[in-house]
Amino acid sequence: MAKYRNALPQAQGGLFLSDGGMETALIFLQGQDLPQFASFVLLEDEKGRAELVKYYEHFLPIARKRGVGFVLDTATWRASLDWGQLIGFDACRLKAVNIAAVELIAALRDLWETRATPIVLNGAIGPRGDGYKAGAMEITEAQDYHAFQVNILAGTQADMVSATTMNTVNEAVGIARAAKSAGMPCVVSFTVEMDGRLVDGTTLRAAIESTEEATSTSPAYYMVNCAHPIHFEQALERDEDWVKRIHGVRANASAKSHAELDESDTLDIGDMADLSRRYSGLMRAFPSMRILGGCCGTDHKHIAAICEACMPGGA
């Protein structure tokens, strides 16, 4: 059974880490071939699962050493029907890899969790389309589409699901509603362009407030991911209620635009020291932001530096 589904520890306070840019790390640092950026393909054989364990075990010792919590994501960001079909996975095969993804991280929790380091199992759900291009789904269509993956994850040990790299309100709302129907805590994580707005021009404030209204505030909290802090810092306002609902950041290492990153065939690790200072500054300015991880271009070295900067007495 799910250990923390009824009371997510990261929602109660304290510092939590998560991993970095899973797909970019697996491709550029571990030499894995991920068709359509789909890390779930590694779950079907022993060698692939070993690569995922290797990836995760770069991060988990950081949390244990510093005595902080960890939100551990499944390798399922692309494990939905349309993406699966593109690479030859039917519904039955997708169900199997979603279940296997949770089983893998549940085994890691058994190995790495301590009283000081609670580990929350998070079912990662990505956008139906390209995370850098606006989708066109209505809310009910998004709910129906993502219910397939949400319902599978609800039947596992996963403590929660996250709608990650969301670039439209409708899709975020659809996933949140599907999660509520399945009895799963849900986090919504938006991505923004260099102007701090979603790709369709919606402000981050409007995106969160609209999602709150359309879901009767059902998301456990919100995050921002797949953007460098310089792209969204200016969009935040101190002491605003909507900002207080943002509990986490998973930033890109690079300050490049989404379009530039999309066209790049090399890994841009950015300025790690500057990124860490920016995380620390965000935590000081916005104390609700205490779940810290990375996205494209980040690896365990980035997360270790961010953790050091954000611990009491850090930068």
Rank of each mutant, 00 (worst) to 15 (best):
L15C: 12
R64D: 10
G155H: 11
E103M: 10
G67L: 04
I152A: 09
S39C: 10
F232G: 00
E193Y: 03
V192D: 02
S80C: 13
A154C: 01
A207D: 07
D130H: 11
A142I: 06
R78F: 09
K301T: 14
L121D: 06
M22F: 03
G13S: 08
G14Q: 05
R277K: 14
Y279P: 04
A106P: 06
A11I: 10
F232W: 08
L292N: 01
A38K: 04
C186V: 14
P185C: 08
G131K: 00
K180W: 10
G201L: 09
D110K: 15
A136K: 15
A147S: 15
S280P: 00
S276W: 07
L198D: 02
A172Y: 04
A182N: 08
L121S: 01
V150Y: 07
S216L: 14
F28C: 04
L282Y: 07
G21Q: 05
S18K: 05
V224W: 02
G293C: 09
A259S: 10
D271K: 07
K133P: 00
T266E: 08
C226Q: 01
S264G: 04
P118R: 08
C307W: 00
I269G: 01
Q10D: 12
Q30R: 13
F40S: 05
A182Q: 04
V224K: 01
Y221E: 08
G281R: 10
L111H: 15
M272T: 14
S80I: 09
H231V: 00
R245Y: 09
W242A: 02
D241P: 13
E209T: 15
M194S: 15
G69Q: 00
E51Y: 12
A96I: 03
D200L: 02
Y145P: 02
M311T: 07
P312M: 01
L86F: 13
G129C: 11
I246H: 00
G88I: 10
T202M: 05
K3R: 14
K3A: 06
D265E: 14
M283P: 09
S18F: 11
K47Q: 15
R277G: 12
P185V: 04
D274H: 13
R205S: 14
A79L: 04
G21F: 00
A25G: 12
A134S: 11
S181I: 15
A7M: 11
M311P: 06
S39N: 11
R109L: 05
G20H: 03
M137Y: 11
T117S: 12
L275H: 03
Y55K: 02
P312L: 02
T117Q: 04
S288P: 03
K244S: 13
E213Y: 15
A116P: 02
R277C: 12
M184W: 02
C226I: 04
D268L: 00
L34H: 06
D271T: 08
S18I: 05
